[in-house]
């Protein structure tokens, strides 16, 4: 009878998760969807890309997340003179011991905030992206595993800003979800202006979770029941991206798997014990928008097309 205690542990973890979620929402007010996306990406074992203008709270969100998760956290501010070693780390020669010692870079943390990732050169970007894809880094022939869970929140300025190296299309899908924060609402803006700096809240933030709990929760989320109608819905959405006239390349099977994984995590986060069509619908834009290649002459953005697909695909 190991199930009952295990179940209770999971339930404890689950309430810790909800508490962490509430904590972060206390810091990042009025952006519950973005916070949900962040937790969803975490539970689905993926990474989050936040794309927005400077000053809307990207860093604060990442910081709050990392604190409430209770693991180690690192922040990497990307610049254009950065080298891959600045991220993954270097091997240092110790004269005393006549051997090399690996000095881990900032990527060795449970939560990594990669700020303004598109300011770095593609070479440096790919060092991070490869670490994200493989969960390990290789320096001088030595492979070093990254800590688990490993969760990257990258922020990126919109691509039309000066002095940036846009992430290549093929690298974008290293990020499970991409989202925008957007401007705060009128009321929220007023609070931002009148109340003390949000960052001071960060100091009060207590870690609610720990790395083991996050892994256990992720494992639980990955086993959520997905019914036939929901699978049908997922397939219909993917098929719609492949047959859409304005899309050059539709979603890959890997993206399909990612969609199920993400929808499960999202449903789990929202206290459902099965994958719901609402979750699929909610995560679909964040999952698909950066993976689609739109025909430039169609004059549409991938967000427009995804809205269109969502509003035209029947929910079985």
């Amino acid at each position: 009878m190991t199930e009952a205690p295990a179940q209770r542990i999971v339930e404890d973890h689950f309430s810790a998760l909800q508490q962490a979620r509430a904590e972060v929402n206390r810091v990042i007010v009025d952006k519950a969807e973005v916070v949900d996306f962040a937790f969803t990406a975490l539970l689905a074992g993926g990474h989050l890309l936040i794309e927005d203008l400077p000053g809307v709270g990207k860093t604060t969100l990442a910081h709050a997340m990392s604190i409430s998760l209770g693991g180690s956290w690192q922040r990497i501010q990307f610049t254009n003179d950065m080298l891959p070693a600045d991220i993954v780390g270097v091997s240092v020669f110790h004269r005393d011991e006549a051997s090399f010692e690996f000095r881990p870079g900032p990527v060795f943390a449970n939560v990594v905030l990669a700020d303004e990732i598109n300011r770095a050169t593609p070479r440096t970007q790919s060092a991070l992206l490869e670490a994200m894809a493989e969960g390990q880094v290789t320096v001088d022939g030595q492979t070093h595993s990254l800590p688990q869970p490993f969760f990257v929140i990258a922020t990126q300025n919109p691509l039309d800003m000066v002095g940036t190296y846009p992430l290549p299309d093929s690298q974008l899908d290293r990020f499970l979800l991409r989202t925008r924060i957007g401007y705060p609402s009128q009321a929220e803006e007023r609070r931002l202006l009148t109340e003390p700096d949000r960052r001071t809240y960060l100091a009060d933030l207590k870690p609610s979770l720990n790395p083991e709990a996050v892994l256990a929760l992720a494992d639980q989320a990955a086993r959520l029941h997905v019914s036939e109608p929901v699978l049908d819905y997922i397939q219909a959405l993917i098929a719609a991206t492949r047959s859409h006239a304005a899309i050059r390349v539709g979603l890959s099977p890997r993206a399909g798997l990612a969609l199920i994984r993400t929808a499960r995590a999202h449903a789990f986060l929202n206290r459902s014990d099965f994958c719901t069509p609402e979750s699929v619908k909610t995560v679909f834009p964040g999952l698909a928008a950066h993976r689609l290649q739109v025909q430039p002459e169609s004059g549409l953005s991938s967000e427009d097309i995804i809205d269109e697909i969502l509003s035209a695909t029947a929910v079985p």
Binding site: R242, S243, H244, A245, A246, I247, E308, A312
Partner: peptide, 9 residues
């Protein structure tokens, strides 16, 4: 109706 939704076949 260069239908955006029309399947690309």
């Amino acid at each position: 109706t260069v239908t955006l939704l029309s399947p690309k076949l």
